[in-house]
């Protein structure tokens, strides 16, 4: 693991002047992931907030090669780049320096429309890392529900109405889906836990094969919290066990962070306007159900870690 002084000596992968909202966590995810690579990186991205805000022609915030083609294909697109690298290296058409291939996608581009492409790329065993910056909705198009949106959350397509209030379904556990692919490395983290993120990415870059990282990426606009609290949102997600930090190395689960005291899920929900309606008396049962679900999954994860 590198410390901040060491990371500060690395080339900045992303510069200022991009058009992400003030307080957006996605650029933090990108910076922390890419700075963990001591080797050159080549980046691919799904369409989404990150891609749009960092590449408004002729202004690119990327100091590393960056390739975007469409929304649902970051996995396939980066798998093609990695195949090109292998082929050209094998034929001596390029040097044999190690390059780390990284794909970034939001939850829309990863959990939903790009799920098949991700699954295919992982199954084919490309030497690449896919990083999902999960902000829990289609933020780029204006906060529509995705399969990553938590139960109860208000989005523009799961609004709070008179009859139906917020998203009715639990979120998809994508990290578990990726574990089921039995790839060498799967992890879940947040940018607030930069040491944890750095250690995971450094390890991932040190091994061959497909890697998947699910990184919680608070969106102050879609979640509705004061913009300076972005990292606090990550900490609350981890401390309530809504978003446990763990990794699965060759199928072996390991918790990388255990909260000193597991906080009630309300602590995570309360500061966010997308959950405000849940605190009405008639919706108390929803919070109770969300808590039950968090507890159930937390217990299961702890058990998995003992296997």
């Amino acid at each position: 693991m590198s410390n901040l002084k060491q990371l500060a000596t690395r080339q900045a992968p992303l510069c200022g002047g991009h058009r992400a909202c003030a307080g957006c966590s996605a650029p933090d995810v990108v910076r922390q992931v890419l700075m963990a690579s001591a080797d050159p990186v080549v980046v691919g991205s799904a369409t989404g907030c990150l891609e749009v805000s960092t590449t408004i022609f002729p202004y690119s915030a990327w100091n590393v090669p960056f390739v975007h083609s469409a929304f649902e294909n970051a996995g396939a697109s980066v798998s093609g780049m990695e195949a090109a690298y292998k082929s050209l290296k094998k034929q001596g058409k390029i040097g044999d320096e190690k390059i780390n291939f990284v794909a970034f996608g939001g939850d829309g581009g990863t959990y939903d429309i790009g799920f098949q492409s991700l699954s295919g790329a992982m199954e084919r065993g490309h030497n690449m890392m896919y990083v999902c910056y999960d902000n829990g909705a289609y933020m780029n198009t204006g906060i529509q529900r995705s399969s990553a949106t938590p139960r109860g959350a208000m989005t523009t397509t799961s609004p709070v109405g008179k009859v139906i209030q917020g998203k009715q379904q639990q979120r998809k556990d994508l990290t578990a889906c990726m574990v089921a692919h039995e790839i060498p490395y799967v992890a879940q983290t947040t940018p607030a836990h930069w040491r944890d993120l750095n250690a995971k990415v450094e390890y991932a870059f040190s091994i061959e094969g497909p890697k998947f990282m699910n990184v919680l990426a608070p969106c102050r606009l879609g979640w509705g919290y004061p913009m300076e609290l972005t990292m606090d949102m990550c900490r609350l997600a981890a401390d309530t066990c809504f978003w446990p930090l763990y990794e699965v190395v060759e199928g072996q689960y390991k918790l990388t962070y255990t909260p000193k005291e597991k906080k009630p899920v309300e602590d995570f929900l309360k500061p966010q306007t997308r959950f405000r309606h849940l605190f009405r008396p008639e919706n108390e049962h929803v919070i109770a159900e969300i808590q039950q679900e968090v507890d159930r999954k937390w217990e299961r994860l702890q058990k998995l870690c003992t296997l």
Partner: peptide, 25 residues
């Protein structure tokens, strides 16, 4: 520096030198 989304914390020799106000949001 590690948390600034706009890469606006300018370091020199591993220390915070200034803040890039042209890009800080």
């Amino acid at each position: 520096w590690i948390y600034c989304p706009d890469s606006a914390i300018i370091l020199k020799d591993g220390k915070v030198e200034s803040i890039d106000l042209e890009h800080c949001k």
